[in-house]
Amino acid sequence: MKKIEEIQLPEELRYSPDHEWVRPEGDLARVGLTDYAQDQLGDIVYVELPAVGIHIAQGAVFATVESVKSVSECFMPLAGEIAAVNGPLSDDPVLLNQSPYGDGWMVMVKPDDPAAVSQLLTAEAYLARLKGGV
């Protein structure tokens, strides 16, 4: 497992305490799991993504990620409608391990309140939480 200093946390993204990242793209936002989360989970073998078009509340489960002997739920960092999902991820879950901020993204969401993004953690604040062992 990586040491905290080895975790990649791009400055331009926002983070949730549940280890999701968010990147605003126009009136949509891209969502995925952080490098820290993928590293903790180990080899990911299966990702279950939501259906396009459904609405998911903030903090609700929007996906599950499985390693060989664990199942983890992913919690929606901001409320909105699922606009797209990363189809290739279902066939090739290793993308989430290899490229958590790139090809391993999970869903595109149309936020109910685009301004809500600003209430999420900055990279610095998220890192501080990781160091605090939260």
């Binding site: 073998v45 299966y46 499985e66 060989v68 002997k69 664990s70 199942v71």
Partner: peptide, 12 residues
Amino acid sequence: LATREQHIRREK
């Protein structure tokens, strides 16, 4: 595919 099973997913 043990993640379907009770020893991992418990009540789910």
